[in-house]
Amino acid sequence: MDSATDDVNQAIAGELQLMDPHVRASRELASQLLDPQFVEVGGSGRRWTYEVMLAELPNHPGSSLSGPCFEPSDMSGVLLAPGLVHLTFETVLGERRTRHSSIWRKGDGAAGWRMYYHQATRVPPGVQ
């Protein structure tokens, strides 16, 4: 396996961890996967920052073991530059289907891969 494939696989692993209800419910675990400069534009159009996301993530859909969990599909990635990976994928959460784009960057030292940017777009019923 080459280093580009390994980098993409590590970003995918981080993305999947962020969909895990245990991780989403834990500020400590989620903070290890989000870059301190993290920004998200959610499916609602709302802009989220690192601190706001960490504070509110435990209350988001997909963060409870008793509720619906994310079902990801078609996840792929590309190495944009050394230490920078772009992922695209879809999820289903309950009745909601969403398309996602995220950028992961490799931190210094033990920081590992962290999500730097995320964009979600809800897919209306009937759209392919």
Rank of each mutant, 00 (worst) to 15 (best):
D2P: 00
A4T: 14
A11Y: 01
A11C: 05
A11P: 03
I12G: 02
A13W: 01
A13S: 09
A13T: 12
A13I: 03
G14T: 02
E15T: 07
L16R: 14
L18C: 10
M19H: 12
D20W: 04
P21K: 02
H22E: 14
V23G: 05
V23K: 13
L29N: 01
A30R: 06
Q32Y: 03
Q37E: 13
V39H: 09
V39E: 14
E40F: 06
E40K: 08
G42F: 10
G45S: 05
R47H: 06
R47F: 04
T49F: 09
M53E: 15
M53D: 12
A55N: 08
P58W: 05
P58A: 06
N59K: 13
P61D: 14
P61Q: 10
S63W: 05
S64V: 01
S64Y: 06
S64A: 11
L65N: 15
S66H: 07
G67T: 09
G67L: 11
G67E: 15
E71R: 13
G77R: 02
G77P: 01
L79N: 03
L79C: 06
L79F: 00
L79H: 01
L80A: 15
L80V: 13
G83S: 05
L84Q: 01
T88I: 11
T88W: 08
F89H: 09
E90W: 06
T91Y: 08
T91A: 07
G94N: 07
E95S: 14
E95K: 12
R96Q: 15
R96H: 07
R97L: 07
T98I: 15
R99T: 05
S101G: 09
S102G: 10
S102D: 10
I103K: 01
R105T: 13
G107S: 08
G107C: 10
D108H: 11
W113F: 05
W113N: 03
R114N: 00
M115A: 03
M115S: 06
Y116M: 11
H118D: 00
H118I: 02
H118F: 12
Q119P: 00
A120T: 12
T121P: 02
